[in-house]
Design a protein around this nucleic acid. Structure first.
Lengths: 226, 226
DNA sequence: GTATCTTTTTACAAATTTTTTACCATCATT
DNA sequence: AATGATGGTAAAAAATTTGTAAAAAGATAC
């Protein structure tokens, strides 16, 4: 199901949007300020973000800039109040894909969301680059850089990392990882997964002994939040 | 216990498979030709069917087609001899969930069985979010938030909560909970359930000592009303 | 074949969860 | 109200799961 993240500080607005988009068949996530919004966008990889400009903690523009830096492929539609014309322009410069001026008709917004999604889906998938923390991953050329410097990854490590990135936010059991990353014809014990996690953490975590991105979910498996 | 039906005309093969799957903890049924297989599948509702293609009386393909028509949700893995490539394709078209080519490694077959079972269990992706009170539960990413803030749940706690949600409104006896959430092979004393309820309440009830959602039904069990 | 690099296994400590225990409160019934 | 059964809960005990280094096994390149 297509996931939409709404970042907006006014609860009534969120509720209204949620109703409408859920009615349209979307899965709706919401966040009530900028920093929460950025966090949820990175953690849940929504298909599109609706982003209010005026918000507490972190302005929509900052969220837009930071999100586009880390996830260039997630489309963003900015919600601006009338009279924030300048912001609109700036927003587009920052990488927003479209903007809508409040008060807007919900039908117009839905139409724009659909349009942006259609464009983003037919676009030459930019799904080949990904970044989190100070790490940049190029899924296509299989290169990984940390703080701008190349890091060597073995084939297995890279496959595993790729799988985590493609399934960010989800809890991945060791069984599932073995099956989907290692494949049917190889049968390492499950501790193999743990051993690899150690190396992923050593290479990519700011402090490997206290993971922030490659999290353990006790009794269930691992979860990557980037 | 998970039930597997093996439909295969060669007794040695059946015996070998039976040994292995019983060792893995499955209950094994068997049938030695197609029509017997179909009959047993319909009568016993196994969790999965291993189906040989080449068999007397009724080919595996026919069994597959008829079984999928009557019980679409029972997963089927086809066993085909090398050189029956066409059959594989047809089998998948007829609704088989996977296929394995003879001779196959038993470990691979076991892995595929597990994979198909896991997929078939995690299928209902639609209603994967639930909320009550100020609590939001995401069944897919295994996350629980209260008033917008993440709460840590152990694997067991999460499974139990999931079961309550899926059976909201019903009175669930301790025995039933032990059986369905803990599984047939584990029988902790019944107070274990109570201990877990305490934690569920502490984490999710507005005032845990006066539960509003996780209710006790004296002498019967617990009822979740969300 | 040897050297080198990668992957898997092993082993044990550490962290975390689950189960049990024990005691007291509450409830239903007489 | 007395009695016995049932439920709440903290804390101890038991069991499970995970982190990690190091050894073993397997691949790959030379």
């Amino acid at each position: 199901m297509t996931k939409i993240l709404i970042v907006e500080d006014e609860p009534n607005m969120v509720a209204g949007l949620r109703d409408n988009f859920e009615f349209e068949g979307y899965e709706v996530l919401s966040a009530y300020d900028g920093s929460e919004g950025l966090e949820k966008a990175l953690a849940n990889s929504p298909d599109l973000v609706l982003l209010d400009v005026m918000m507490p903690k972190m302005s929509g523009l900052d969220v837009c800039k930071q999100l586009k830096a880390k996830r260039p492929s997630i489309p963003i539609i900015m919600l601006t109040a009338r009279g924030q014309e300048i912001d609109k322009v700036v927003g587009l410069e920052l990488g927003a894909d479209d903007y809508v001026t409040k008060p807007f008709s919900i039908r117009e917004l839905v139409a724009r969301v659909k349009a942006v999604l259609r464009r983003s889906h037919t676009l030459p998938k930019e799904h080949d680059r990904y970044s989190f923390s100070d790490v940049e991953v190029d899924l296509r050329t299989c290169r990984i850089a940390r703080a701008g410097k190349q890091i060597e990854f073995s084939a297995m490590e890279f496959e595993l990392l790729k799988y985590f990135i493609c399934n960010a936010g989800e809890v991945l059991s060791r069984e599932r990882l073995l099956e989907d990353v290692w494949g049917y014809d190889r049968y390492p014990t499950t501790r193999t997964v743990d051993a690899h996690l150690v190396r992923l953490r050593q290479k990519l975590e700011p402090s490997p002994e206290q993971p922030r991105f490659f999290l353990t979910v006790h009794g269930m498996g691992y979860r990557f939040v980037g």
